[in-house]
């Protein structure tokens, strides 16, 4: 009985760690959440958290080895609803002593939580890029162009994501197509503000989560994860830049 319980708790901790890593939490948050849950069940957890896999060793209250396993993390899809839900769940485990079965049910419920409708995601993100254009000094016609370009670009990126294209290549293609749309419209309507539409229409691709998490990971002492995240962010930036540059060279806007 004792042995089965440790296997269940170990699997639960690994699942929570993998979900947090894929949803875009920083490494320190994953460590603290896993330690908090393990402690509330009376186990001592030691772990190695990397970008692609989590390694966990559990010791039962007597100090004997109870569980040892490695789990691959899932694909990186930012999902703050999951992070927020797991954070609340971990405090409920501490405060209310939830059973392992209840926690599994809660995790399944969090996985099935509805996301925002696709049209709303596309429209608000495109509106955000239009807002960037306005902040950078563009006028309302340029905002409309940016809205159209980002809307189609994000749509293409999502479709490429469904077809399991390499994510960096997907970012490159999305950036290229977005700026091409801007450029083609720009032939009939020359931009007045030094190609502000070109710059701001690709901003929905910026790797904000990897770059900010990399600094916080490095400051927490998780330097290896920080460097991996920073590299990830730099490669995404490079993919955006190359798509943008090819379009700029085609339209000779330099």
């Amino acid at each position: 009985m004792q042995k089965n319980q440790s296997i269940e708790i170990g699997a639960l901790l690994l699942e929570i760690g993998a979900l947090l890593m894929s949803a875009g939490a920083n490494t320190n948050r994953i460590r603290l959440t896993m330690r908090r849950i393990a402690k509330s069940y009376g186990y001592k957890a030691e772990y190695l958290i990397t970008h692609r896999a989590i390694m966990l060793t559990l010791q039962n209250p007597n100090g004997d080895l109870a569980f040892n396993q490695v789990k691959q993390t899932y694909a990186q899809v930012p999902n703050f609803m999951m992070v927020s839900g797991i954070s609340r769940l971990s405090w409920r485990i501490v405060d209310e002593n939830l059973s392992v079965e209840t926690v599994w049910q809660e995790i399944e419920r969090l996985k099935l939580l509805p996301k925002y409708p696709r049209l709303i995601i596309l429209a608000t993100v495109a509106l955000a890029c239009a807002a960037f254009c306005r902040l950078g000094g563009g006028n309302f016609t340029e905002m409309l162009i940016v809205f159209l370009a980002s809307f189609s670009g994000l749509f293409i990126k999502q479709e490429l994501g469904k077809k399991k294209v390499n994510p960096y290549f997907g970012v490159f293609l999305a950036s290229f197509i977005t700026t091409m749309i801007c450029g083609v419209i720009g032939i009939w309507y020359p931009f007045q503000h030094d190609n502000m539409a070109f710059v701001t229409s690709v901003l929905y691709l910026i790797p904000g989560i990897p770059l900010i998490n990399s600094i916080s990971d490095i400051m927490d002492g998780n330097s290896l994860n920080g460097i991996i995240r920073a590299l990830n962010g730099v490669v995404i930036s490079f993919a955006i830049a190359s798509g943008l540059l090819i379009a700029i060279l085609i339209f000779n806007a330099v």
């Binding site: 993100v125 509106l127 955000a128």
Partner: peptide, 24 residues
């Protein structure tokens, strides 16, 4: 004041892209 609103709109776009809970 106009820029104030555009800063907020830009943040909301990214918040929805990152799938934040509605209450936030």
């Amino acid at each position: 004041f106009e820029k104030w609103i555009w800063f907020g709109v830009a943040a909301i776009g990214f918040a929805i892209l990152f799938n934040v809970p509605k209450r936030t």
